[in-house]
Design a protein around this nucleic acid. Structure first.
Lengths: 155, 155
DNA sequence: TGTGAACTGTAGCCATGGCTACACTTTTAC
DNA sequence: GTAAAAGTGTAGCCATGGCTACAGTTCACA
């Protein structure tokens, strides 16, 4: 009984394109996630280095609200991926690549926050939301943000 | 040699508040991520149900670009969390809660896309970016978006 | 100067979200 | 009405990003 389906794939060829576009978008969004964590770490390490001259795993852990073990594990991944360096017990530093990434991430973060503020989002919410949003903003969208802010005389 | 640090915690009490604020923001962002996946599934299932009358794991998998096994596993999590129902081999349906969530997610998605379009982001990028952004937009920011669009006579 | 506190690092556990491989239903089509 | 195709479900693997527990190192200060 309960005969719910009548599949069979005549329209498969028709449906596919849209399906694939959506699938591609989702995959891209998913894979952006692992990058997001690294970006946060790099951004924070750059901040610690520029304000205090050093970045130690425990500081990173505290600022990100994770255990020091987690911070150390992620930092070692940063090193594996060529974004950070440093000797045991001697703090963490950024490679050239790491510094470039940090600069890019910081600029993007500021742009997103400014954008939200310009739209009237309260400061606290703007900062918090930007933390999540910034990792998913494409170049095209960044450019649009910049133009919008410029046209308003802000930024 | 290499005496880099002079820790010792006199300023700990002073630094803590800002540190905690940031840590809280990060944790919130992190925990938003698990919700993001469920939201995507619920939104898609709602879409499949409304357009085709049924939602089958394989369709979900194809549209999201994951294997059918992954889709089934996630759908069973949806069921565990009270968002979906359905009998084996008989398709997936949304509970009341699932439907409410789907409606909220859909409205938010539309608002984010409209917002990006209003700012001059190209349509393709707007759709793609919204997929990632939408999960991190707070109520306050949504409200700001809505007001902005209204003030421009859009939406 | 040596010792305790703080920090660093390692090991091993858990859940999530992917995957492939295999087994089992259901539906289609002959 | 049955065999093949399509869909569904289960098992078991992997990497990531959390955690706690424990071991090792460095530093501050008495």
């Amino acid at each position: 009984m309960v005969r719910i389906r009548k599949r069979k794939a005549v329209e498969a060829a028709v449906e596919l394109p849209a399906e694939l576009t959506q699938a591609r978008r989702f995959s891209k969004t998913r894979s952006a996630q692992s990058g997001a964590l690294l970006e946060d770490y790099v951004e924070l390490i750059a901040d610690l280095l520029s304000t205090g001259g050093e970045a130690r795993p425990t500081d990173v852990a505290r600022r990100l609200g994770v255990s020091h073990a987690t911070a150390i594990k992620t930092i070692s991944r940063l090193k594996r991926e060529g974004l950070a360096t440093g000797l045991p017990y001697r703090g963490v530093f950024l490679t050239q690549d790491g510094q470039k990434l940090a600069a890019r991430v910081r600029a993007r973060h500021r742009l997103v926050v400014d954008m939200l503020l310009a739209l009237g989002v309260p400061a606290e919410a703007a900062e918090a939301d930007a933390e999540g949003i910034e990792h998913y903003v494409s170049e095209a969208t960044l450019k649009a943000f910049a133009q919008f802010l410029e046209s308003r005389g802000q930024s």
